[in-house]
Design a protein around this nucleic acid. Sequence first.
RNA 1: GCGGGUAUGGCGGAAUUGGCAGACGCGCCAGACUUAGGAUCUGGUGUCUUCGACGUGCAGGUUCAAGUCCUGUUACCCGCACCA
Length: 801
Amino acid sequence: MEKYDYLSIEKKWQKYWEEHNTFKAETGSSKPKFYALVEFPYPSGHGMHVGHIKAYSGLEVVSRKRRLEGYNVLFPIGFDAYGLPTENTAVKTGVHPRIVTDNNIAKFTDQLKRVGFSFDWSRVIDTTDENYYKWTQWIFLKMFENGLVFRDKTLVNYCPSCKVVLSNEDSQGGKCDICHSDIVQKTKEVWYLRITEYAEKLLQGLDKVNYLPNIRLQQENWIGKSTGAFVNFTVKENGEKLRIYTTRPDTLYGVTFMVIAPEHPIIEKYRANIANIDALDAYKAECAKKSEFERTQLVKDKTGVKIDGLTAINPVTEKEVPIYISDYVMMGYGTGAIMAVPAHDSRDYDFAKKFGIGIIEVIKGGDISKEAYTGDGEMVNSGVLNGISNKKEAIEKMLEVLAEKGCGEKGIQYKMKDWAFNRQRYWGEPIPIVHCPTCGIVAVPYEELPLKLPPVKDFQPGTDGESPLAKIDEFVHCKCPKCGGEARRETDTMPQWAGSSWYFLRYCDPSNDKEFASQEALKYWMPVDWYNGGMEHVTRHMIYSRFWHRFLFDKGEVPCDEPYAKRTAQGLVLGPDGEKMSKSKGNVVDPNDVVEQYGADVLRVYVLFMGDYEQAAPWSETSMKGCKRFLDRIWALQDMLIDGEEYRPEMTSSMHKTIKKVTEDIEAMKFNTAVAAMMTLLNELYSAGSVNKAELRSLLIILNPFAPHITEEMYSKLYGGILSEQQWVKYDEKLCTDSVIEVAVQVNGKIKAKINVPAEAEQDEVLSLAKADRAVASAIDGKNIVKEIYVKGRLVNIVVK
RNA sequence: GCGGGUAUGGCGGAAUUGGCAGACGCGCCAGACUUAGGAUCUGGUGUCUUCGACGUGCAGGUUCAAGUCCUGUUACCCGCACCA
């Protein structure tokens, strides 16, 4: 037998599959449908690394198996191509982002094809294609029409290096998601999508879907629902209401001061009445300068200034308390004002200690001279609440009091903030809005979509944080769609996450030029049956796209409310040094190198065999050689082939066991143990010295999703026909066990012997066989048998004294 | 600080969910075939004081039986972070 020439054979089958549309999904087919989705890549200039391969290989295996099982499978791929890195390359090299993107997509496509992924290449999408972003803009306009788009001048996360405003999601940890420099807070007028309107729906929707528990939990935490109460305090000097949010209305008697955010509007409103307004202004300016990083470093050391001239009145106790400003209260959460209960909140406690403010205990159980007590206990110093020791009850009671007095009510808050939706950059979807001096903000009419990104020479952003588009007069100057007068176009573009917020819908009907996708295609394919991707997208892309999808559902544009029925995540591929792969560390493995040197099948088997799919695992070239050896041994089975239409009796249980294991493990994403099971079977065949036709055929079919090229080649050579068009092999549960099984015999929990018993033997028979064993007999000789345990097919334990 | 996770040979990792710890692979050792082997095949490989004992981060507990359950503890990883 000739050596396995992976380079030419892999190419041959890739060509065959492409020419014969082997993996084409057919909308409307009567077969059951299966929509498998992987996160489409951002086509960066560095090409793919092996992490991408692992990310796609999971559902690739599932998809190939499903096709063999008779499903009509949609397994698409595309490119999420808008974004800063491409634009930065363009700025650096002077090559237009369009060219950069096209080159990168070509490179990625080549890499993906060489791995032999069974994508439906007729459905490829590119978010920067005008036939695609036309619909991104269309959805944006729909949202605008429905009041979900608004402009606001507030504090925003700003990256001084990239010169862009970032969303909360894009500035996690106070670092820019793109360049990792420190974020500063800046007051700016920006576009927002009202995602908070969907907070409750996004939370409730999690009940209906099958996400991995940690994915679900992260989303719940990100949405961050809390229940509590709004309470209106009164400012003594002017009667103004000062509204606060608290989760602990039960501690209202313990309030000894109030704190408002430095940006709270009440300061501006009563400037004239505040004696120390200069000190407040100075503090405010200082806060604005601090980076997010500095603020978190100073958690313990509270700062603030007392407002001289405004005093608050507690609506329940009617006591007067001072008001402070401090940056530990955020304008963006709740009402930007809090009631401070130092006895039972550690932040308020720190502040009170530093500023020498009184502390009143209202819940017994702690030692408030040392620290704040946040646990439960009996209410004291709290009027009608005294004596209650159940927190829930105390809160209910206080809510009643607040309702009676008309100064507060139950309230709900979410940590999630509205989505800052514009970027002052070139390489993104233009926001289809016109600013008219007479009509104000006007939507570009639907008929004018796509609003095309104009060609420019200079993609440098303006120093004042203006988009490069602002420099193009032909783009900026336009007629107002409403009144026809002179108007200005919006020059900011959408953030990178826009295009990916609905791409799974476009795959259903990618070349439709009348709708973003036909109802027929959406009804047939949606929802996505199984979505796999990285953990890093759980609180961004996943939340954003669920939001867009739910909005479209509310408008009757899509047939189901939740887009993803199931979501899993793969672990990272680490470098050989155990570190995260990165260009700067020089530990990146290029899949093309592996394909050239070992073959695509080896790469595919290895990324799935290297460890638990959901766990991170380091790359090891020597380990990969084991996978190469495995496939070479599969190839060499041809030399051991004998006739036989059925499994040989001595191989029957191994065959059925392996098929069962592989069938089940693929569904559970336990690819590593599926491969291990096939290796075990292969070892058995080598021990037997032969394989018959029926056995090899089954083995090739279950190995096919992992190593499609070599199995396709062997199948066509030995059996004729195309493996990808065959049926998945069945197993029989009854044939998975051997007729004689080995049972371990323990005496007092220690293994003394291993005996062979008939599989269907009952306890009595097994026990007498066990006692007949010499080692067991001597261990129990002369002792009293206290207890005898038999676990069917596993072990016997004889307890003696 | 809060939330979640992980810890098993020289290495990557298995373990039917309370039932033979170390499957499978790498590496290593030995043998075979070879002019040769960084190829292939065969066998071996947790540790130790080896007819036995000890072994799943550490200390306890429950059980006939614990990597798995309970209590406490340490280290590392991830997410959120002054969220009132």
